[in-house]
Design a binder for these strands. Structure first.
Ligand code: MN
Ligand code: MN
Ligand code: MN
Ligand code: MN
Lengths: 216, 216
DNA sequence: TAATAAATTTAGACCTGTCTAAATTTATTG
DNA sequence: CAATAAATTTAGACAGGTCTAAATTTATTA
């Protein structure tokens, strides 16, 4: 149906669209690790196929069709990640690269059966929502830990940064999905925070707090 | 490491090598559904990479390295087929196309864990042996049903034809892997056979008998 | 608002993998 | 063994996706 490159562009446009109505060529180039000129070439192809709305120099947005395809790829990505962690015992920092390949396996029948096999999980190992077979999913209303005050807290439900380094760090600190945390102290000087969990006290930098998402 | 096209060529050369020391350009073109000239181009690339032994006009064979890669792809193909049938409840005639895509997922760690998850199966849904993580596997010594005589028989352990049509036909006749069959009668005229299984009597054509493999 | 900077697109090239048509080599056969 | 047929390779082209360098458009700022 669509090529691997096309699918990756659609997915990237989708992800960048979350915080904006329109996505720029340079944003895409950065995310896709390619050059702006390559992006322009591809945008023309996707516009030709009516998967994106593209006006030269004005950025792009997905059409309804393009968005459907993007969400389907994200569904596949997250279901495979869930499979790798829950069934094959991978750690949450190990699965992204594999899912980047697996998300392009074309069969929808396969992914629907995988979904059933795992009993329709709602969130992937990083706390991101898994779209159902109709592309529907709930958007959790999460806040970064950095945005809450002393004695406030909640349950860790997601991360903003998906890098290996960040995920490994959180794992080592036992700051994983589902953990309950409360802010015990905020250091004025550098905005680092001291968190209280059930079993220990952990100091995290502002950067870490900014990328850690909780539900109140 | 290697491209999708390269992997498919190596796999095809491997499969065609089973019945010959050398594989011809046209054989490959037929199996890969491409043109002889395209095959020649690719053979040059694979020879350059020292994955095949290639002398113009004289056909090709795999080098040790090339064979290792080919066996690894076959391992992946068959393990994924096993997964699709045993865990996701697909029928044996539905899994080949999906496995054609899945076999190119690069991670060996993934496939080794999948292997473990399924408790190291030795044969895929079509009775073909699954190489272990070192590329080792036993070659079953199977015979086509067409080659045995009256009152002889054995257990169905494989098929020569992997086409949907053939697999679906066998399924409908309950002639599936593991079934015990005995030759009750051979029709002189067209060499069709009447088989006796535990629960019924089935007449099959010579063509069907030729592609059905049993262990004595 | 004119000059400069930043973002984006165009021009032209390259690589992979494929194709058709033509040339070449090997096999077959009268 | 020469003529013909079959198999294979070469020549030249093309599509997809990428790149660098140059041109163009839009944004910023003095
Ligand atoms: Mn991921
Ligand atoms: Mn994820
Ligand atoms: Mn198969
Ligand atoms: Mn098989």
């Amino acid at each position: 149906m669509n090529t691997l490159a096309e699918e990756n562009y659609l997915k990237s446009i989708y992800h960048l669209s979350v915080n904006a109505t329109s996505v720029s060529t340079n944003q895409l180039a950065a995310l896709l690790n390619t050059k702006a000129s390559s992006v322009t070439d591809m945008l023309k192809k996707l516009a030709e196929k009516e998967l994106i709305n593209y006006t030269p120099y004005q950025g792009v947005s997905l059409t309804a069709t393009g968005e459907k395809i993007a969400v389907n790829i994200i569904r596949k990505h997250r279901l495979w990640e869930y499979f790798l962690v829950e069934k094959l015992d991978f750690k949450w920092d190990q699965v992204h690269e594999m899912a980047e390949e697996l998300e392009h396996i074309s069969s929808n029948e396969l992914i629907d059966r995988l979904d059933k096999f795992m009993e329709y999980p709602k969130f992937d190992p990083h706390g991101d929502p898994i779209p159902d077979c109709n592309g529907l999913f709930k958007i959790h209303n999460l806040k970064p830990v950095s945005s809450i005050g002393i004695n406030e807290g909640g349950v860790i439900c997601g991360v903003r940064d998906h890098s290996k380094a960040y995920l490994q760090y959180l794992e080592k600190q036992s700051l994983t999905i589902g953990k309950k945390v409360t802010v015990a102290e905020i250091i004025e000087f550098d905005h680092s925070m001291i968190l209280q969990t059930e079993d220990k006290t952990i100091q995290i930098s502002r950067d870490v707090a900014n990328n850690l998402l909780i539900a109140l």
